[in-house]
């Protein structure tokens, strides 16, 4: 996999500028994303998350500021946008709704084919991607519409993985799945990062899922409200609550217990919290 770095430099985007429908998409975003790292983007519907994702993939071009892939401006005249599309893979919400081919394998080949790979290379890439997402070979020639919901979702993700991106961006990849389906997707993302050194950028509404990321980015009304390690960001309980956002369960518990007079350090997940509590208990 290629190691890449995507930088958003002071990027702004406005929808329908100059009309009565003018709305802010993103304002002055300074962000940087790298392979091998994981990022969680949180914020309400309408906070600018989907604008941000589309800017990262070149589907929108910024009104102000630059998007740089390994130092190159992706909206410069000579730049081939397909280079960005293949480096930064974007998986939309409910990606299974974009499936269209007669067979699973053909659908996954669509991306690499568009990038100009030979049919043999496409097939190789597609097989590798399907293997990664855990779709077995006997399903390759099946009609994707006959698969289960969770399988369809994974085939759609494979469709983007087959383009061999260095960073994978996903908009709520677990939305609407049952707990098992959700776990499968989350563990897939973990594998991609650990074994394939892929950068993972995930929009999530679930703070417990977001807390696993190296960096958490909180958006509000198009601006970056908070940014930092999960520990740093989720410490700002009041600030997040003001934005109508939550913190992970263990941190909520920690706060509640402190307010009941129990002296606890900042606990981030159930394991930390139970250890701290048991320490107090045994004292």
């Amino acid at each position: 996999m290629k190691t890449i770095k995507l930088v958003l430099e002071n990027v702004s985007y406005v929808y329908n500028p100059g009309t009565i429908y003018e709305t802010v998409g993103i304002t002055d975003a300074d962000l940087s994303f790298e392979s091998e790292k994981s990022y969680a983007v949180i914020g309400h519907t309408g906070s600018g998350k989907s604008t941000l994702l589309q800017l990262m993939n070149g589907l929108l071009s910024p009104a102000k500021g630059r998007v740089l892939l390994d130092g190159e401006d992706v909206h410069a005249k000579k730049y081939k946008i397909k280079k960005l599309r293949s480096s930064v893979g974007l998986v939309f919400q409910y990606p299974e709704y974009q499936l269209f081919e007669e067979t699973v394998i053909k659908d996954v080949c669509f991306g690499p084919k568009n990038l100009g790979y030979t049919p043999e290379e496409c097939l190789e890439l597609a097989k590798e991607a399907l293997r990664l997402v855990g779709i077995e070979e006997d399903k390759f020639d099946q009609n994707p519409f006959n698969l289960s919901g969770g399988q369809k979702r994974r085939v759609a993700i494979a469709g983007v993985l087959a383009m061999n991106p260095g960073i994978l961006v996903l908009d709520e990849p677990a939305a609407g799945l049952d707990p098992e389906g959700k776990e499968q997707i989350l563990s897939l993302l973990k594998t991609l990062r650990e074994t394939k050194k892929m950068g993972i950028v995930m929009v999530s509404h679930n703070m417990d899922d977001a807390s696993g990321a190296d960096e958490v980015i909180v958006l509000d009304k198009g601006s970056i409200a908070l940014k930092g390690s999960a520990r740093e960001v989720f410490k700002e309980y009041e600030r997040l609550a003001g934005l109508g956002l939550d913190v992970p369960f263990a941190m909520r518990m920690t706060r509640l217990l402190r307010s009941r007079g129990i002296d606890l350090p900042d606990c981030f997940d159930n394991e930390e919290l139970s250890k701290a509590l048991l320490k107090i208990y045994k004292r």
Partner: peptide, 29 residues
């Protein structure tokens, strides 16, 4: 899940199974 971890660690919580954080925090505290 947290309640189970605490019980496994030897904390003797009551029989009542708290389902949300407020109830559980009260029980633990």
């Amino acid at each position: 899940l947290l309640r189970d971890m605490l019980k496994d660690g030897g904390m003797r919580l009551g029989e009542h199974i708290a389902l949300d954080e407020k109830e559980l925090a009260m029980q633990i505290a």
